[in-house]
Design a protein around this nucleic acid. Structure first.
Length: 269
DNA sequence: AAAGGTTGCAACCGCTGGTCT
DNA sequence: CAGACCAGCGGTTGCAACCTT
């Protein structure tokens, strides 16, 4: 008999931090058997955990190829750029950061966000208060936290505004901030609907090309025009269109495919 | 030195969407 | 078609480590 969540009746399942022994058991089991069904993994591996917990532990901690330690400036840029367009879609952001997990990125964002907020520049405070004020009336009816939701986008926008020469030639970032031309679309991008592929993400789209490690020469004029004219329907369209140019492309797919079982066992000791 | 506050991060919880029967 | 199962996602919580007073 199974519960609704697919778990077998508990024989007192453990919670909390994982011990090194549990880690080893899980790691050994998945290396030798894979994980066809997570609900059966703890049973077969002899762990008093639920499948969800095992999955999370594997993905966030035990999976091979995970990067540990602080984020590089480049990774920060990628997160900020993608977040400004995608919102809190951590798993989607994580796809562009090989070796980083959605949980890690999410945690980093919330830590980073506070620092940025405290360090924020005086001239942006007015703009921020205007933004949060206008946002309050729209968001107050929702269950989501105004501080986290609105701030996320304000901070993202700050980052975009700071970029020195990455703005589209026809309009400076400062002007974008002041004119408010793009603000509502970007600021409320997630609030409106993060799943809507037709939302206009112009500023982030324009800036997104910089995270692909490409020089201007590598982006042909047609693509620049398409981006600036917003002919892509979403940021992912841009990313998908360019990701095959990235050296990390195979690396990123490698993790999502699970192919490491077949050819990367030498990573284990 | 100790108490209280803050930060960072691992893990849990509840929800959603896809798949299967 | 409906319901059950399951994986995955994002929000939230708990707690240890660190910092401040």
């Amino acid at each position: 008999m199974m519960t609704k969540s697919g778990e077998r009746p508990k024989q007192r399942q453990r919670k909390g931090l994982w011990s090194p022994e549990e880690d080893q058991k899980l790691k050994n089991f998945i290396i030798s058997h894979g994980h066809a069904c997570w609900t059966t993994v703890p049973i077969l591996a002899g762990l008093q955990r639920n499948g969800k917990s095992c999955r999370l532990r594997w993905i966030n901690y035990l999976r091979p190829g995970l990067k540990r330690g602080t984020f590089s400036a480049e990774e920060e840029e990628i997160i900020l750029t993608l977040h400004s367009s995608l919102g809190n879609k951590w798993s989607r952001i994580a796809k562009y950061l090989p070796g980083r997990t959605d949980n890690e990125i999410k945690n980093y964002w919330h830590s980073y966000l506070k620092k940025r907020w405290l360090k924020s520049q005086p001239q942006l405070k007015t703009q921020r208060s205007n933004l949060t004020e206008s946002a309050t009336s729209l968001i107050s009816c929702g269950k989501r936290s105004l501080e986290t939701e609105t701030l996320d986008h304000v901070i993202s926008f700050e980052k975009l505004a700071e970029k020195p020469s990455s703005s589209p030639p026809q309009e400076s970032n400062t002007n974008m901030m002041n004119s408010g031309k793009y603000l509502p679309k970007l600021f409320f991008s997630e609030w409106i609907s993060s799943s809507n592929p037709h939302i206009d993400y112009s500023p982030a789209l324009t800036y997104s090309k910089h995270i692909n490690h490409q020089t201007e020469d590598q982006i042909d004029e047609e693509e620049v025009m398409m981006i600036n004219n917003n002919n892509y329907s979403s940021l992912e369209d841009v990313m998908l269109r360019t990701e095959f140019l990235q050296p990390d492309h195979e690396y990123a797919n490698y993790y999502s495919s699970g192919d490491f079982f077949s050819n990367n066992d030498q990573n284990y000791v």
